[in-house]
Design a protein around this nucleic acid. Structure first.
Length: 594
RNA sequence: GAGGGGGUAGCUCAGCUGGAUUAGAGCAGCAGCCUUCUAAGCUGCGGGUCGCGGGUUCGAGUCCCGCCCUCCUCACCA
């Protein structure tokens, strides 16, 4: 019997296969196979309870018959998987230590897991849109989430075998630029892209301009007019715009470098400036778009909220009344470009949750447009995330005063990590301590953001983002480092020394092995809704199981029988590989020692 | 008003398509554990009427209905 990569899937198939042979069950029987509380079993089938009710049979008796049919099929090797009827009518399946050991021997490295996961996306062409910042000012904590979540989601998709294009769709063609240009005009400021303070200058000017437009509707109109001029090709505004974009992009790039973020293409809104006209004409030709109060809008009468009859009108405005484009225009043009130029079969947008209405409208309009023009629509997914709140419970960007800059956050994290590594390992060379600190610091920030469900809001807090203990990135990295240390001490390479490993014995060995087998399930759930926190939860549990094992089961004890040492080395090697693979999927770079 | 988040331990959060007489982590608190593989760690203790009220059924934090609280969005910002 081959070693099942995914025992739950195989058991599910087996139960479905034999079900028709049992009186009261048929080919539609769903075993409802679930992972179990480890105190009971590894997996359990709950489906008999529902089936027994439908067939008006005693659930325990039915479960017993089903189990007998499974045994009669001869396809369940009970030296590997022990099955029994339990409770009101569950069927429990427990992997024996022999089975756990066999799995660990068979599925030993990343290439095996990757091969298994690759079937999920199977070479599908996917475009992912992140982090797509839209302001010409310094990045602050509010910019953390699209970077961190976007990168993790991208890596998960890639791991599953997609052909992925990372597109940084920067917001460089909107009213924020009108505001900036106006502010620069009014202040008479001479922008110099090469000046070291260029970014700070822009930031200050934007803030001034923004205050003005909020206080004075006329100023907002003036800003819009500057944008309209820019969009119609005004040479002066275009020159100014180029300089602003240059300064802004350079600043963003410095942050991206520290987060290890690389885009395949950077096609911002401005890239589509000559592609929006096609959107206007096509939408009108299809009869989707019409004039309303001077703007070009799309009504969606199928959806009450976006219907022309809605109480609160919420049309999808694709062209403003002054003729300028907005994000609806450029997003539609972008959708078309990604479908035609990149042949995208799926597009993933990673943005703030406050844009959900926009994406609903975009997706619905896009669907109608593509249908009417006989185009094939890619699968569209909006991976949205909650807001980082300030201490006042309000979104960080609306907070009065300056939000914490992303760079100061990185610096502080790195500094604290440096202090920690210097305290714990003063013997490491200075340079190495600096490198470790950089990795650990950024990892800690990332992990906090990834560890909770992305749809949740959370409040900014230095102590939370810079924690190095408990369920944090340093804890996971530390677990991997302790494994590596064992191999270093015993002078063998990771993955070596496993020959002649005996069957798992101690409770700590067994529960660690069970956790290791849970990796694929964790990947599945993280991928399903593109929620990286499932992977974080799993990695933390794995590291904790290793911690328990590590404290009680020594590996390099010279009195240990060779076969025992071999099996423990195997557990260590698998733990290290899965931890490091998992961390890399979160874009956290593991270290050798810390 | 419409749509969408959220309400689970003092705090921050898990809890996947309902499942097993004790609802889980981490932090904070208390008590232990380093002459032996990195103590950024391990072990133990205390701590919860899962917002409220009904309902569905063998079984509900999870599903349905009603209500309360809170955050976000709602015509030319992105």
């Amino acid at each position: 019997m081959p070693v099942w990569f995914n025992p739950a899937r195989e058991l599910d198939a087996l139960l479905r296969k034999v079900a028709p042979q049992v009186a009261g069950l048929d080919s539609h029987f769903d075993p409802e196979l679930r992972p179990s509380d480890p105190r009971h079993a590894d997996f359990q089938a709950n489906g008999v309870l529902a089936a027994a009710k439908r067939a008006k049979q005693n659930p325990r008796a039915l479960a017993t018959s089903l189990l007998e049919a499974v045994r009669a099929s001869g396809e369940l090797d009970e030296t590997l998987i022990v099955a029994e009827v339990a409770g009101p009518g569950f069927i429990n399946f427990k992997l024996t230590p022999i089975a756990l050991g066999a799995w660990l021997k068979e599925y030993r490295d990343e290439s095996k897991w990757r091969a298994g996961a690759a079937k999920i996306m199977g070479g599908k062409k996917v475009v992912i849109d992140y982090p797509s910042p839209n302001t010409a000012k310094q990045m602050h904590v509010g910019h953390l989430r699209p970077i961190v979540i976007g990168e993790a989601v991208a890596r998960l998709i890639e791991f599953c075998g997609a052909e992925l294009i990372r597109d940084n769709h920067i917001g460089d063609w909107g009213t924020n630029f009108g505001i900036l240009i106006l502010a620069i005009r009014r202040s008479g400021f001479k922008l110099d892209a090469k000046s070291p303070t260029a970014l700070e200058d822009l930031e200050r000017l934007y803030k001034e301009g923004s205050l003005q437009t909020k206080a004075d509707p006329a100023a907002l109109d003036a800003a819009r007019a500057e944008l309209a001029k820019l969009q119609t090709g005004d040479a002066e505004n275009l020159k100014l715009w180029e300089e602003i974009v240059q300064v802004s992009n350079a600043a963003c790039q410095r942050i991206y470098d520290q987060f290890g973020l690389k885009s395949d293409v950077i096609l911002g809104e401005s890239f589509y400036r000559d592609k929006v006209n096609q959107v206007y004409t096509e939408l009108q030709k299809c009869g989707l778009a019409e004039e309303s109060e001077g703007a070009l809008v799309v009504w969606d009468d199928e959806e009450p909220r976006f219907s022309r009859h809605a109480e609160t009108k919420m049309p999808f405005i694709v062209r403003k009344k002054d003729g300028s484009s907005n994000y609806a225009s450029t997003d539609l043009a972008t959708l078309l470009y990604r479908a035609e130029h990149f042949k995208a079969e799926e597009i993933v947008y990673v943005t703030d949750g406050r844009q959900q209405d926009h994406f609903h409208q975009l997706f619905r309009t896009g669907t109608r447009w593509f249908n009417l023009s006989q185009r094939k629509l890619p699968r569209l997914r909006h991976v949205w995330f909650g807001t980082i709140l300030g201490e006042d419970g309000k979104a960080i960007k609306t907070k009065s005063g300056d939000p914490v800059r992303l760079q100061s956050l990185i610096d502080e994290a790195t500094e604290r990590a440096y202090a920690a590594v210097t305290e714990k390992s003063p013997e490491f060379p200075e340079l190495e301590r600096r490198m470790i600190a950089q990795k650990v610091g950024v990892a800690a920030l990332r992990y906090v953001d990834l560890a909770s469900n992305r749809t949740m809001d959370y409040s900014f807090s230095w102590s939370k983002l810079l924690a190095f203990e408990g369920n944090t990135a340093p804890y996971l990295m530390y677990a991997a480092v302790r494994v590596r240390s064992i191999f270093r001490k015993s002078g063998i390479a990771l993955g070596q020394g496993e020959e002649g490993a005996s069957d798992l014995e101690t409770p700590e060995e067994i529960s660690l092995a069970r956790k290791l087998l849970g990796f694929t399930a964790a990947l599945d759930s993280a991928l399903e809704d593109l929620r990286p926190h499932h992977l974080c939860t799993y990695l933390h549990e794995l590291a904790a199981a290793y911690g328990t094992f590590y404290a009680v089961n020594s590996v390099n004890d010279p009195t240990l029988p060779a076969a025992t040492k071999a099996r423990r080395l195997m557990l260590c090697a698998r733990t290290c590989s899965i931890l490091e693979t998992g961390l890399r999927l979160l874009a956290i770079e593991p270290v050798e020692r810390m």
